[in-house]
Nucleic acid binder design. Structure first.
Lengths: 208, 208
DNA sequence: CATCCAACATACAGTCTGTATGTAAGTGCA
DNA sequence: TGCACTTACATACAGACTGTATGTTGGATG
């Protein structure tokens, strides 16, 4: 067995230090913004030195990316956990919406995932993270709901992206004090509209 | 008449210097990100010193806010200019959408207004700016379209906010290489769905 | 024309990021 | 088991940046 004090394997040390750093960074990044949080503060909170930080992460941005990654995974996990398999496509979408909005109420999450994340890592990187963890259930749910309807010949990928953006903005608005019921109703109306409307013909857009 | 060299009134000096700073900052903020752009670089580009900057603006963030403000106004102006008054509500909305997406193709605008803006100034400040310049035509158009339909009893404000978010994301996606036609179709589908669907009854959400 | 104030320029203090260097502890191999 | 090598840090340093304080010049003003 292991001695409880010294005598830790290198792998264990790495894992523990990285976890400490991410935990400390998460706490601070959710309290203040990314720019307002300095690495000296982070390492103080984590109980290590800046040397450890720059040994495990390429730079401050990489540490931030790790925090975002973990947080996105946490949100996805909460949503998956809330999904009951026995629902209709529409019910499942609504359940997923509620789970998402609830998950985003965790303090600081909107700043981390919706404000600083895109600005610091870029939209492309955030899209990649979103597509890896979350958004999967939303896209699948949408496609299922649309497939249930006969005539909707619409770009599913674009619709998914736009609806995800609406979800994000709803989370921000609710956190800012907006009516959760209103935003919920608006989101559902947007989704319902997709599978119901017999669309009028659309002329192509002017190219530029 | 004015001598072309010296002999400028104080008001003129202020106006010119502020304009130079905003112009230089805009150029750099759209090229790199807010954090990557330093005030020494900005004042060099503007041909003044940092003293002038901090005389006219409280801090770097205030200068950024001025740039965002001006850019939002420019976008709104482009949209207003493109709107023909003789269209139906739906046609007007589509024309506005096209004008918005076209306006957002100006290089760096998405970063300025959609990425760095919210992160640096906060969502609340960006909402205030959006509501002052742009978004007005979108909200009015939406309300008009919804009023044309009898039974849509939906929170107009929330719907406007969510649709605006979808527009923003569409602009980002298109800039990232997404199909403009797809996103245009998806946006129109979202809007059309609102005024067409006889909504199924919705149960209230669990409070938390 | 003398005073005052706005519009800057210059100098400085503090902080931050990233890197380079040093050290102790773990790991692999003969 | 002992030794070479590498990993996991800590410390020290260089450069840059932000905001402020101070100085200076040229309009405005009575």
């Amino acid at each position: 067995m292991q001695q409880e004090s010294g005598r830790r394997s290198n792998r264990d040390r790495t894992e523990a230090t990285r976890a400490d750093l991410i935990r400390a960074a998460r706490k601070l990044f959710t309290g203040k913004s990314y720019v307002e949080t300095g690495t000296p503060e982070i390492v103080a909170e984590a109980g290590v030195t800046r040397g450890a930080l720059y040994h495990h992460f390429a730079d401050k941005q990489a540490l931030f990316a790790a925090v975002v990654e973990q947080e996105a995974a946490a949100v996805a996990a909460e949503i998956d956990q809330a999904s009951a398999p026995s629902l209709s496509a529409r019910e499942a979408l609504i359940a997923g919406s509620d789970a998402y909005l609830k998950a985003m109420r965790a303090p600081g999450r909107t700043r981390l995932l919706l404000l600083d994340g895109p600005a610091v890592l870029g939209r492309a990187a955030m899209d990649e993270i979103d597509n890896r963890h979350g958004n999967r259930s939303l896209r699948e749910g949408l496609i299922a709901a649309m497939r249930a309807q006969p005539m909707t010949r619409l770009p599913a990928e674009a619709l998914t992206v736009l609806l995800a953006a609406a979800f994000d903005r709803a989370a921000l608005a609710i956190e800012a004090g907006g009516s959760a019921a209103d935003y919920r109703a608006a989101l559902i109306a947007l989704m319902d509209g997709l599978s119901a409307a017999p669309l009028p013909s659309i002329r192509p857009a002017p190219s530029r």
